[in-house]
Amino acid sequence: MIPTWSTFFLFPIIKGAALLISYISNTCSFPEPLKEEEEEELLKKLDLGDETARNILIERNLRLVAHIAKKFDNFNIDVEDLISIGSIGLIKAIKTFDRTKKTRLGTYAAKCIENEILMYIRTLKKMRKEVFLYEPIDSDSEGNEIRLIDIIGINEGDVVADEVEGIIEQDKLREKVKKLSGRERKIVEMRYGLCDGIRRTQREISKALGISRSYVSRIEKRALSKLQKDMASEGYH
């Protein structure tokens, strides 16, 4: 059976949700939340500078992070990324929590976790306004990435010709690429075959560098935005 478009879009969501459920239900992963009296006791110890109390408060609120991350699973963001972002919010919450304000830690932490995720989504939305033709938008049943250029039917040759007008612009762009940070430069060079003429997929790069595909994607987007701004500031469009 030929997979439909809905299959392509639903598969990552279902996979992500299953992973998330396993974090919440698997007793080997995130520990049980604290009882109110346990929490109160640990907060008192935390006020006295007890490091262990802080560790326990963070660990026992990780399920809260996973539960809040679940609310955002329709934003097409990697579920593990969401839990990491939520964990940043949780660490901030534990560090800044003020017991004298009579708010429950769970209420305060939930706000901080949600806020961190929302801020991240806002930043992503800004970045997503910039559409890149070679950005993978999904993958087919064999795991090959599908790029925007593949479905809108533009001749790649025309696009390249439009994008890079003349050898002077190309040289300028190569100069700018050299100024990127180490990992950004490496990813842009591999994606666009700047060193050996071989364009690699994000999945291939993620395997080669030992990092996740979503991380490669974020670094690539950030690098392209930098290059775009840098080129525009010198009058190249």
């Binding site: 995130f30 593990e80 990491s84 972002i85 991240y120 990092i211 996740s212 991380y215 974020r218 950030r222």
Partner: peptide, 13 residues
């Protein structure tokens, strides 16, 4: 460095 923190914190679980 935000992306780096996202990646590294995954080591926790």
């Amino acid at each position: 460095g935000y992306d780096y923190y996202i990646e590294q914190l995954k080591l926790i679980w």
